[in-house]
């Protein structure tokens, strides 16, 4: 695919757990991400959903090399050249930072409280010497204006701002280096509903104007559906399904996706919810279940699920799923909301 901006292949991130002996020997691994592959096209938004502990945040951060991947390839296209990010040295990677950025979840901890807003936004420019002198200020002002920040605010420190404004500062920092790819890691989850809508609009506007490519990680399914063109579902370090948003939401092929969709809160009081019950808890990523990782909680589990690892298959156009029975099961998608319009 010529339009692919980023492709990851068999990405693995394993965290060693030290045993408590004198020599600090390594014995076990937390397999936070265990063989994840997908691609993102230029200018699209790929949503990534999953419960806490599914490894979705680790995927985002290991693409950016904020966490070192254990294995796998991360190929990134810049100016018609392809690079494997996982092979770059730290120093080489620094040169790539201008092309890829992260928008954090917590608008409070992600801004250095000791720097002015101007310095925070300017950091990517100054750290990589992308601009000098007046150009720095010019680009900072431009980025701030795009994020609807009052330019008077640039002299101030983060403690002067509310959560929504801080998140806009974080977005301005992310786009000041004119990146191509931005990872949004739960970027609107900590915000109030009214502010959240504004930030989502802002992200979509910026994408339309500059052609940004987003990896949008969140646990709120409606938010992900709203902004994403395609959505990937993660469970216990692996992808279970990836499809265009509408297909995934209304015609899921994996039992776990079905369970997620049934749990979306229903705003209309007339419509009753029937969430699918999953048994037990999400298993530990240190000793993931054999076979299909979801078999311990799957309502449709069969004997071979316990032993055979399901293949990651494209069963329909652009619809990938890892389930032995993807073709035979009839699963229910999200409820199409009946209109609850005001007035």
């Amino acid at each position: 695919m010529s339009d692919t901006l980023l492709e990851i292949k068999d990405l693995k991130v394993h965290f060693p757990i030290r045993s408590k002996n004198l020599f600090g020997g390594v014995t076990k691994y937390v397999k936070a991400v265990d063989g994840v592959s997908f691609y993102i096209e230029k200018g699209e938004t790929l949503g990534l959903v999953g419960e806490s502990g599914s490894g979705k945040t680790t995927v985002g951060r290991s693409i950016l090399r904020a966490i070192e991947p254990t294995a796998g390839k991360v190929t990134f296209n810049v100016d018609d050249e392809t690079f494997d990010l996982s092979q770059l040295t730290d120093k080489e990677m620094r040169g790539f930072r201008e092309h890829m950025q992260l928008i954090f979840q917590d608008p409070y901890s992600s801004l250095n409280p000791r720097m002015t807003v101007r310095d925070i936004i300017a950091e990517p420019l100054i750290a990589q010497k992308l601009a000098t002198g007046d150009e720095v200020d010019e680009r900072v002002r431009e980025a701030a204006a795009l994020c609807k920040l009052n330019l008077e605010f640039l002299r101030r420190f983060p403690h002067a701002f509310s959560g929504g404004q801080r998140q806009r500062i974080g977005i301005a920092r992310a786009l000041v280096s004119r990146p191509q790819f931005i990872v949004c890691d739960e970027s609107v989850s900590a915000l109030d509903v009214s502010i959240q809508a504004e930030i989502l609009n802002l992200l979509m506007d910026l994408q339309a104007e500059f052609g940004f490519t987003y990896l949008f990680i969140a646990h709120d399914l409606s938010v992900v559906a709203h902004i994403s063109k395609r959505v990937a579902v993660m469970y216990l370090g692996q992808l279970v399904e990836l499809a265009p948003t509408k297909d995934l939401f209304y015609a899921p092929k994996h039992p776990y996706t079905e369970a997620l969709m049934s749990a979306i809160p229903e705003v209309n009081p007339d419509q009753e919810m029937n969430p699918v019950h999953l048994d037990g808890e999400i298993p530990s990523p240190i000793n993931p279940p054999s076979g299909c990782r979801f078999h311990t909680r799957c309502p449709y589990t069969q004997d071979n699920c316990k032993t055979d690892i399901p293949k990651w298959e494209e069963i329909e156009d652009n619809h990938f799923v890892a389930c032995h029975f993807a073709k035979t099961l009839t699963l229910k998608g999200a409820e199409m909301p009946t209109s609850v319009d005001a007035n």
Binding site: S222, H226, K246, A342
Partner: peptide, 29 residues
């Protein structure tokens, strides 16, 4: 939920992303 009368309540409801309006601009406050 169905007949909100205060502009704030209406805005709060409008601000929630909805599955039947995917990709549309949200009405932010």
């Amino acid at each position: 939920i169905q007949q909100p009368q205060h502009p704030y309540t209406q805005a709060l409801l409008e601000a929630i992303p909805r599955l039947d309006r995917l990709g549309e601009r949200l009405t932010a406050i």
